[in-house]
Structure formats: C-alpha cells, structure tokens
Computed example of a mutant assay.
Amino acid sequence: MPTTPRFDFDTHDGTGTLRLEGDWGVHTLNAVEPSLKALETDGLTRLEADLSNVGRFDTAAAFLLDRLACRAGLESVTITHGSESMKALVAQAQALRPGPEEEAEPKQTFGLVDLLERTGRSTMRFINEGLDMLAFLGDTLTSMLMAILRPARMRWTALVSVMEDSGLDAVPIVGFLSFFVGMVIAFIGATTLSEFGATIFTVELVGIAVLREFGVILTAVILAGRTNSAFTAQIGAMRMYQEVDAMQTLGLDPMDVLVVPRAFAMLIMTPVLTLVAVLFGIGGGGFVSWVALDINPTVFFNRLQDTVPLQHFWVGMSKAPVFGMVVALIGCRQGLQVGGSVQSLGRSTTKSVVQALFSIIVIDALFAVFYMELDI
C-alpha cells in the first residue's frame, strides 16, 4: 500500500466519489490539498469517500474532507469502506462546523427590502430565543423538583459553594452601593421637597423607593453583572475543555450538576442580598436626612415605621426570587451554549449579561403593572 496520499474522483448522477489511497495525515496532506481544492463540486447532491485503501487517517484529513463537502454545499460526506474510527473523526469534524451565529455576517445593504429582511430575521431570532428560554426553564424546574423529591440528587457541596461565591461575597458591594443610592434618593428628595416646605416627607420618599424598587433592582443588576457573567464563564470554560461531555460520558446530568445548585443558590441568596440592600439604602437616606436636613435618626426611623406600610417591603421582596432565578437561568443557559472557541465564550458572556439586564427591567415593569392593578 503506498504511503504517499493520492485520490481518484469521479461523478455519476450527481454523486461524487473520492477513492483515497495512502497515508492521509497532517504531515502528508500538503501533497494533495491543492488538488482537492481544485476539484469541481458544483451540482453535487452527494459526496462519498472510499477509505478502504487508506493507511493513516487523522483529524486533519477529516477536516479536509469536511471542507470539501462544505464547498459543495452538502451537509456531510458519506464514508464507505472505512473503519469506525475514521467515521468518528469525520463526524467530529462535521460537528465542529461553525453555527449560523459564528459564520461571517454578509455585507449589509440599506434598501427597504433589506431593512424588512433584517427586521424579520431579528424578530424570529428574538422569538426563537424566548421559546428556547422557556424550554430551558421547564427543564430546570423539572430537575429542581426532582432534587426536592430526591435530596440525594442534590450537590450540597456545590450549592454551599455557589451560595458563598454569589451571595456572601457580594454583600460588601451590594451594601456599599445601596448606601450611596439611598443617599442620592434623599438628596434628590430634600432638594425637590424643600421648595414646598415639605422636607420631612423625604423619609417617605426614601422608604418607599428603597423598599419597593431600588433595593431589589440594585441587587438584581449587581448579580446580573457579577454572578450572571461568572456562571456563563465557568460553565462555558467547562464546555470548551469538554468537561461537560465527560460528565455525560460518566452518566451525570449537567442539569443536576451545574444548573440546579446555581438556581437554588440564587433563589436563597437573592432575597438575603435584597434585605441587605434595603437596610443599607435606608441607612444612607437616614444619614443624609440627619446631616443635611437635621432629621434625628430616631425621628427618621419612627416616622418611617409609622407612615410607610410594610406592604412595600413585601412587594420588593416578592421580586427577589424571580430576579434570582432569571439571573441563574440566563447565565447557565448561555454557558451551556458556548462552543469550542474563546470568541464563543466572550460572545456568550456578553449576551448573557445583556439578556439578564433586559429581562430584569422588563419583569420589573410587569410587576409594577400587576401590583398597580391589585392596588398594592
């Protein structure tokens, strides 16, 4: 059997047949690659490769055959008379083709038809993304329910670790920013209400704003930028290094190992962080009221207790688990969609943060309409 690679190519009824001989490896392909690129593949409906006389056959040769199929506009190349390992290499090369989102964007034009086409394409992507997100939500809720019914499935060590990373370690930044946001709200209230001689109502402004909206929103935004991106990067790196595939080979479900602990951790820690944000936000407002408005802290907190209903606190806290679940779902889903390249990881991380921020604002608006209709 010759070691130098060579091939014969013929077509019949739209089927192209390659008969390969010799050793097809990364060190010998330079002898045949120009000839393969020069083959006429227009009009082919099927491409077959006969590997019965091939000695060595590695990944580089598999990619070369797959690129030939790509140039012919075919989904795959059919291997005949080849070993199972050869077929597996070709199948792997086909699986690593760039997806539609990774292919080069066509040059944009700016006619009316092109505008409508881009609008329709973007709309369909948005709808498909929403449907995929709902499907992932269903899978996650099912896995979480199974973990509740069968606690032995829960990865308790991973749950505690994620609670520490995403919750406990986020307390300083949540408290720090909430304190200054409370100060800003108090300054704005004092400046505006002083024109009407009603600076004492700064207490109600700070209390309602922080309890109902700013505490939970600020917590969710911090988690979207900090924890959401971390989830995507962690799981995406595992996808890049094929650790998720190794889990599946060992019979482990990535939903149980990677997604469920993060979802439970966010459900538990987001209300806790929201409570921290509320306390620090009110503390910042009370500090400004004391320094700038001469409202004694005792008077501030007594008036807050007397004039601000407790329902505002529960309205804010009711949003926290929903926002925590949104952050966990989007971060984990985008991480599981990472491909084999660093560019894919960066793209998924950016998309994850943007989707989380967008979803938080939209869901908060829906909550506002819902509570307004209930007169809460």
Results as ranks from 00 to 15, higher is better:
2 P>V: 03
4 T>K: 11
6 R>A: 04
7 F>H: 03
9 F>L: 02
14 G>V: 07
17 T>H: 14
18 L>F: 14
20 L>C: 15
28 T>C: 09
32 V>S: 04
34 P>I: 08
40 E>S: 15
43 G>P: 10
47 L>T: 04
49 A>Q: 11
51 L>C: 14
51 L>P: 13
52 S>F: 09
52 S>M: 05
52 S>H: 13
53 N>G: 09
55 G>P: 11
57 F>H: 09
58 D>F: 10
62 A>R: 12
62 A>P: 08
62 A>L: 15
64 L>S: 08
65 L>P: 10
67 R>V: 08
70 C>V: 12
70 C>T: 14
73 G>E: 08
74 L>S: 00
75 E>N: 10
76 S>G: 07
78 T>G: 06
83 S>N: 02
84 E>P: 11
84 E>G: 09
85 S>V: 14
86 M>S: 03
90 V>Y: 03
90 V>W: 03
96 L>D: 12
96 L>C: 14
101 E>S: 14
103 E>Y: 04
106 P>C: 02
107 K>S: 13
110 F>K: 06
111 G>H: 12
112 L>G: 09
112 L>R: 07
113 V>R: 06
115 L>G: 11
115 L>Y: 06
121 R>V: 05
124 M>W: 06
125 R>C: 02
130 G>N: 14
131 L>I: 15
132 D>V: 04
134 L>P: 07
135 A>M: 10
139 D>M: 10
140 T>C: 07
141 L>G: 08
144 M>H: 07
147 A>M: 05
148 I>F: 14
148 I>W: 13
150 R>N: 12
151 P>L: 00
153 R>S: 08
155 R>Q: 06
155 R>C: 04
156 W>L: 02
158 A>V: 03
165 D>Q: 10
173 I>E: 00
174 V>F: 11
174 V>Q: 03
176 F>H: 03
181 V>F: 07
184 V>D: 00
184 V>H: 06
189 G>A: 13
189 G>Y: 04
192 T>R: 11
197 G>Q: 09
197 G>T: 13
198 A>T: 01
199 T>H: 02
201 F>S: 12
209 A>F: 13
211 L>V: 10
215 G>N: 00
218 L>W: 09
221 V>T: 09
224 A>D: 11
225 G>M: 10
227 T>K: 15
228 N>D: 15
236 G>H: 01
242 Q>D: 10
243 E>K: 01
249 T>L: 15
253 D>K: 12
253 D>S: 15
254 P>F: 04
256 D>I: 09
257 V>Q: 09
265 A>W: 06
266 M>Y: 11
269 M>I: 12
269 M>R: 04
271 P>E: 14
274 T>C: 04
277 A>C: 12
279 L>P: 07
281 G>L: 01
283 G>V: 06
284 G>F: 12
287 F>T: 08
293 L>Y: 11
294 D>H: 15
297 P>W: 10
298 T>C: 08
298 T>F: 09
301 F>R: 00
307 T>M: 13
318 S>V: 15
323 F>G: 01
324 G>I: 10
325 M>V: 15
329 L>M: 15
336 L>Q: 02
336 L>W: 00
340 G>E: 05
344 S>H: 05
350 T>W: 07
351 K>A: 14
356 A>F: 10
360 I>V: 14
360 I>H: 02
361 I>C: 01
361 I>V: 02
362 V>I: 14
365 A>P: 12
365 A>R: 01
367 F>S: 02
368 A>Q: 05
370 F>Q: 01
371 Y>M: 00
371 Y>R: 01
372 M>V: 00
374 L>R: 13
376 I>R: 05
